[in-house]
Amino acid sequence: MASEPDPDRLRALEARLAQVKEKPKAQQSTTAKGFSQGEVAWRMVIELATGIGLGFAIGYGIDTLAGTIPIFLIIFTLFGFAAGIRTMLGTARELGRKAEQAAKDEGN
């Protein structure tokens, strides 16, 4: 015996599926500019790694020219780390200001 599909149940199912498909878009966490939290985190990791890498390269270059390996390498790598942290904190402050501004705009 084959049973016929119930059209009312199918419409109800389609309505529930439509609701479920819309929810993830509303629940996705984004920053004020529309970037996801993961994108912001990667940006900060890249800023830190770039600072360390540039400090390492500059220190290694100076040490190679001066023949004093690893004094400047260590010093400039630490400077690069500090610069990367400072850049990350600046990005966090900027995103915080944008989030506050977006919250104020939503309130109006």
Score class of each variant (00 low, 15 high):
Met1Leu: 09
Ser3Lys: 14
Pro5Phe: 05
Pro5Gln: 14
Asp6Trp: 08
Asp6Asn: 15
Asp6Leu: 11
Pro7Ala: 02
Asp8Gln: 12
Asp8Ser: 04
Asp8Cys: 08
Arg9Met: 05
Ala12Asp: 09
Ala12Glu: 14
Leu13Phe: 12
Leu13Val: 04
Glu14Val: 11
Glu14Asn: 11
Ala15Arg: 09
Ala15Cys: 00
Arg16Leu: 03
Leu17Val: 01
Ala18Met: 11
Ala18Lys: 06
Gln19Tyr: 04
Gln19Asn: 14
Glu22Lys: 12
Glu22Ala: 14
Pro24Asn: 01
Pro24Trp: 03
Pro24Tyr: 08
Pro24Arg: 06
Lys25Thr: 13
Lys25Ile: 06
Gln28Trp: 02
Thr30Asn: 09
Thr30Trp: 02
Thr31Ile: 00
Lys33Arg: 07
Lys33Trp: 02
Gly34Phe: 01
Gly34Tyr: 04
Gly34Arg: 10
Phe35Pro: 02
Ser36Ala: 04
Ser36Gly: 10
Gln37Ala: 12
Gln37His: 01
Gly38Ile: 07
Glu39His: 05
Glu39Phe: 12
Val40Ala: 07
Ala41Ser: 06
Ala41Met: 10
Ala41Glu: 12
Trp42His: 12
Val45Pro: 01
Leu48Ala: 09
Leu48Thr: 02
Leu48Glu: 07
Leu48Met: 15
Ala49Asn: 03
Ala49His: 06
Ala49Tyr: 13
Ile52Pro: 04
Ile52Val: 15
Gly53Lys: 13
Gly55Leu: 03
Gly55Ser: 07
Phe56Glu: 01
Phe56Val: 00
Phe56Gln: 00
Ala57Leu: 13
Ala57Val: 02
Ile58Lys: 02
Gly59Val: 05
Gly59Phe: 01
Tyr60His: 01
Gly61Met: 05
Ile62Asn: 00
Asp63Ser: 05
Asp63Pro: 10
Thr64Leu: 10
Thr64Ile: 01
Thr64Tyr: 06
Leu65Val: 08
Leu65Pro: 01
Leu65Cys: 03
Ala66His: 06
Thr68Pro: 05
Ile69Gln: 07
Ile69Val: 09
Ile71Lys: 10
Ile71Ala: 12
Ile71Trp: 09
Ile71Asp: 08
Phe72Glu: 04
Phe72Cys: 04
Phe72Ser: 04
Leu73Arg: 00
Leu73Asp: 04
Leu73Val: 06
Leu73Thr: 15
Ile74Thr: 08
Ile75Gly: 00
Ile75Val: 15
Phe76Asp: 08
Thr77Phe: 01
Thr77Glu: 00
Thr77Arg: 00
Leu78Asn: 03
Leu78Met: 07
Gly80Gln: 06
Gly80Glu: 03
Ala83Arg: 07
Ala83Trp: 05
Ile85Lys: 11
Met88Pro: 10
Leu89Gln: 15
Gly90Arg: 08
Thr91Glu: 13
Thr91Val: 07
Ala92Lys: 12
Ala92Arg: 03
Ala92Val: 09
Arg93Asp: 15
Arg93Ser: 13
Arg93Cys: 10
Leu95Gly: 00
Leu95Trp: 10
Gly96Tyr: 00
Gly96Ile: 04
Gly96Asn: 11
Arg97Trp: 10
Ala99Asp: 05
Ala99Lys: 06
Glu100Ile: 05
Gln101Leu: 06
Gln101Gly: 05
Ala102His: 08
Glu106Ser: 09
Glu106Lys: 15
Gly107Glu: 14
Gly107Ala: 15
Gly107Thr: 06
